[in-house]
Design a protein around this nucleic acid. Structure first.
Length: 550
RNA sequence: UGCCCGAUAGUGUAAUGGAAGCACAUGUGACUUUGACUCACAGGGUCCAGGUUCGAACCCUGGUCGGGCAACCA
């Protein structure tokens, strides 16, 4: 990574550990459960996990936390790996599976039983709730808590051997039913769940719970700093308890706040609702904050990385403004994308004094400030398309750049032209305008040096490519769709988040391939969609250019 | 009303007992063959009250406000 990783409180901890000699190398991990698609919230974690390892010349493991076969699927493994790679990170040899440690986890569980620190609880789930109690009052000791060690070993063995029905019992840590931290009131360590695991098949019918599994996974892999989101803060005493009781390598869990973004939602459950109810067209719909959706939208991995780097890591719960992200996307795209001309809402221009059968070709730079990005050839002829809003009957102020009758305007890279007349239909809509061009102004400057107010883009009518344009905008109409807990966030979806139109493109765009990014000058940043073909050109608007300040 | 965590411009963050900075956003202006980009300038902040200290955003105490925790999910 070339992006500078800004320092944050986690790095302070790491630097102290390095300085004190507590750690000599840094190992982090990104531990997704393969049960869904990654979104930009995960990108924050990925950038932190991989970026931190990178910053301290350490390693970051990709570890699939596949401890719940009921929810997980191989399909997600591929998509997660793909997204991480796209973001620009590489786990190298360090890809692990929680399920590869099942044997060892089982042995550790037996060890806890032998120490009298775990027992098999045969209370139904619902009944245990009563024993756990409520936050303000201590719980009470469930039956079975005083089982003998031998009894527990036998029971756990029977659990493992499939001698109990699903849910008949769990293995619990024996900690403190009166703890003010609910997670220490004898939490479940293992449950019975007959489901075919994508990796271990039907080898196991008991699976470790997150709290038991995660710290052991970290420990086995020698993870030094295990970063996770804030909601796991209250789990940390349990994380520490298990490692201490087992007396094994003890990573440090450090919590940071989740990423929230204005005008979108981030929870997996809510995104699923949008998909299931057909409010978006799938997980990779370009309106979605999923990495797949953002990639398809045309957002760049570099912008996402920079964004996450700027946000850093804190323990403050926050909602970041999408404007910052958009600004970084524009920064990146402005540097890297090829320029082209496209007219999104066309009206025709007829150059009355231009020969009907003449076609000229102009060489236009692919980037106004980067000669090394080359040039392209753009055909010019008597009939052109320009943007509907580049003509107006009466200009509202002297800032208007386009045509009105009598106004001379520069046709970008071609000629100066003066509007002479307008043609409208019976309802008063402009159909076409007539202009005369100045043959002396080839390239766009007049020999007499006269200035024009505006420069507008155009496309030669006879050479134009018709394309479908998907204009994307923010998914919701309000900054925080979840702010009103009474309301359904789905009612706040922005109906204009996708508007499909047709446009006239300059002919050089015929060579575009899916994923290619362009700046359509004076309009915005666009990329050829996944389903783009030469026969059915389809472009997504990533972002409009920064809006003019009236 | 149990336990845990947090609070710095509108937003996100820096300053780790010694001049409160940066970015985005906002406003004004310059430049411009993209109303983009670029450039210049401007406004605006330490939750409150005490305490310690020569000196507090930072340490202490007490409030206030916000968030999390009672899956055999992660």
């Amino acid at each position: 990574m070339t992006e500078e990783t800004k320092t944050n409180f986690i790095h302070d901890i790491i630097e102290a550990d390095l300085a004190s000699g507590k750690r000599t190398e840094i190992i982090t991990r990104f531990p997704p459960e393969p049960n869904g698609y990654l979104h930009i919230g995960h990108a924050k974690a990925i950038c932190l996990d991989f970026g931190t390892a990178d910053k301290y010349n350490g390693k970051c493991h990709l570890r699939f936390d596949d401890t719940n076969p009921a929810a997980e699927d191989e399909e997600y493994v591929q998509s997660i790996q793909n997204d991480i790679n796209w973001l620009g990170f590489d786990w190298g040899e360090n890809r692990y599976w929680a399920s590869n440690y099942f044997e060892q986890m089982h042995d550790y569980a037996v060890e806890l039983i032998k120490k009298g620190k775990a027992y098999v609880c045969q209370l139904p789930q619902e009944e245990f709730k009563d024993y756990r109690g409520i936050p303000t009052e201590p719980g009470k000791e469930p039956p079975g808590r005083e089982n003998s060690i031998e009894e527990n070993r036998t029971l756990f063995e029977q659990m493992k051997n499939g001698e109990f029905e699903d849910g008949a019992c769990v293995l619990r840590a024996r900690i403190d039913m009166a703890s003010p931290n609910l997670h220490l009131r004898d939490p479940a360590l293992y449950r019975i769940k007959r489901a075919t695991h994508h990796n271990t098949g039907d080898q196991w019918c008991i699976y470790p719970m997150y709290d038991f599994a995660h710290c052991i996974e970290d420990s086995i892999e020698g993870v030094t700093h295990s970063m996770c989101t804030l909601e796991f803060e209250v789990h940390r005493p349990l994380y520490d308890w298990i490692l201490d009781e087992l007396d094994i390598f003890h990573p440090q869990q450090i919590e940071f706040s989740r990423l929230n973004l204005t005008y979108t939602v981030m929870s997996k459950r809510k995104l699923l609702e949008l998909v299931n109810e057909g409010l978006v067209k799938g997980w990779d719909d370009p309106r979605m904050p999923t990495l797949g959706g953002m990639r398809r939208r045309g957002f760049t991995a570099a912008a996402i990385r920079t964004f996450c780097g700027i946000l850093g890591a804190t323990k403050v719960e926050s909602i970041s403004e999408i404007e910052l992200f958009e600004s970084l996307v524009r920064d990146d795209l402005n540097e890297t994308s090829l320029r082209a001309m496209a007219v999104l809402d066309p009206i025709k221009v007829i150059l009355e004094n231009y020969p009907a059968d003449l076609v000229e070709e102009f060489e236009l730079p692919n980037h106004p400030k980067k000669e090394e990005m080359g040039k392209r050839t753009v055909p010019f002829s008597r009939e052109l398309f320009i943007e509907r809003n580049d003509y107006i009957d009466v200009p509202p102020n002297n800032k208007f750049k386009g045509f009105f009758v009598g106004r001379e305007v520069r046709l970008r890279g071609a000629y100066l032209a003066t509007c002479t007349a307008v043609e409208k239909d019976s309802e008063g809509h402009v159909i076409a305008i007539s202009c005369t061009y100045d043959p002396e102004s080839k390239g766009g400057s007049a020999p007499d040096g006269r200035k024009v107010k505006g420069t507008i883009h155009w496309v030669s009518a006879q050479h134009a490519i018709d394309a479908k344009i998907r204009n994307y905008d923010r998914l919701f109409t309000v900054e925080n769709p979840l702010a009103d807990k009474e309301a359904d966030f789905k009612d706040l979806i922005n109906p204009k988040a996708l508007q499909v139109t047709t446009a006239k493109l300059e002919s050089s765009l015929a060579g575009a391939k899916p994923g290619d990014r362009y700046q359509f000058e004076r309009v915005g940043y666009f990329c050829a969609d996944l389903d783009h073909t030469a026969n059915s050109p389809t472009f997504n608007r990533t972002l409009p250019l920064r809006a003019p300040k009236k």
